[in-house]
């Protein structure tokens, strides 16, 4: 396994891995290609010419429903969920690190939030709002529904980070006379910054793509995944693929920016001589 010569096992597994990657990306690339389908082309190959007509179609409101509005709502909701997930997970991580009465039940509650099926969260929040006489909206009920999915991931990441975090750094800061806030802001926060970017990335992308938890909680205005799902039942032109291509590129953009941010932080740290 760690021998110098590549074994047959290596080549077999490498081929398997390559197939897996092809399996992951193959279908995705077909819709990227088909979104440039010619004006008279259909939902499958062959390409009937090449055009950007379906992308233009996307912005004509009457053709495909409310793309602009649902995109704006999903992006805003994603940012709200991202900010909340980062702050709440960080605070919870600090709390779990110190320990408190009830830490274990709260941790198991966060874990169970991962395993409760999305449709149940959706139904439960929808029913709660109905019983309480509240109007479900994307910024209240759907916001809460998304947090039940993003927070456990955030808490787990923070848990793992603080498990490996040496208290020696903070103790050194305190010995040099830093207040506990200074030790946190100037020592702890910079060290865990890349992980926080990761938590934020999870928060945004999981919310931006969430469908099942939004189903009964979005109220009268659709988020983007709901809009796309609606389109699958009544749109039979490649405009569906154009929408898919645009949202996928937005996701890729967010992932790219996050990874770049993590890389920049890592490089700065290297420059400062901190590992």
């Amino acid at each position: 396994m760690t021998s110098d010569r590549r074994t047959l096992e290596f080549y077999l597994l490498a081929a398997f891995f390559a197939l897996f990657v092809l399996f992951l990306y193959g279908p995705l690339s077909t819709i990227l290609i088909l979104s440039f389908q010619g004006p008279n082309g259909g939902l499958t190959f062959p390409m009937n010419g090449v055009s950007t007509r379906w992308f233009q179609n996307l912005f004509e409101t009457q053709a495909v429903g409310d793309f602009g509005g649902s995109f704006t709502r999903s992006a805003l909701l994603g940012l709200m969920v991202m900010a909340t997930t980062v702050v709440v997970s960080l605070l919870a991580g600090l709390a779990f690190r110190r320990g408190f009465f009830g830490a274990t039940p709260l941790f198991y509650l966060a874990i169970s939030s991962l395993v409760v099926p999305s449709i149940l969260v959706s139904l439960g929040i929808g029913l709660s709002f109905q019983i309480l006489g509240l109007e479900p909206t994307w910024w209240s009920s759907a916001f809460g529904a998304h947090l039940t999915w993003t927070l456990p991931f955030g808490v787990l990441i923070m848990f793992a980070v603080f498990n490996r975090f040496s208290p020696a750094y903070e103790e050194a800061a305190r010995d040099l006379g830093a207040s506990s806030w200074q030790a946190f802001a100037h020592v702890v926060l910079p060290i865990i910054a890349p992980s926080l970017v990761g938590v934020g990335l999870f928060g945004f992308t999981l919310s931006y793509d969430e469908f099942a938890r939004t189903l009964m909680t979005a109220g009268s205005f659709n988020t983007l995944p709901l809009e796309i799902y609606g389109m699958t039942t009544n749109v039979t032109t490649p405009v569906l693929y154009a929408l898919g291509a645009v949202t996928t590129l937005v996701s890729f953009g967010v992932i790219g920016v996050s990874l770049a941010a993590i890389a920049v932080i890592a490089r700065q740290r290297k420059k400062l001589g901190v590992s």
């Binding site: 702050v87 709440v88 919870a92 408190f100 509650l109 029913l127």
Partner: peptide
């Protein structure tokens, strides 16, 4: 000891309101 409780409160409140309460409603 007050600090960890304040830090854990947002998580507990959100999960209580959007997970436990909804399951009770179901």
């Amino acid at each position: 000891p007050l600090a960890p409780y304040l830090q854990a409160a947002p998580l507990a409140l959100i999960l209580g309101a959007f997970l436990l309460l909804p399951i009770a409603a179901i």
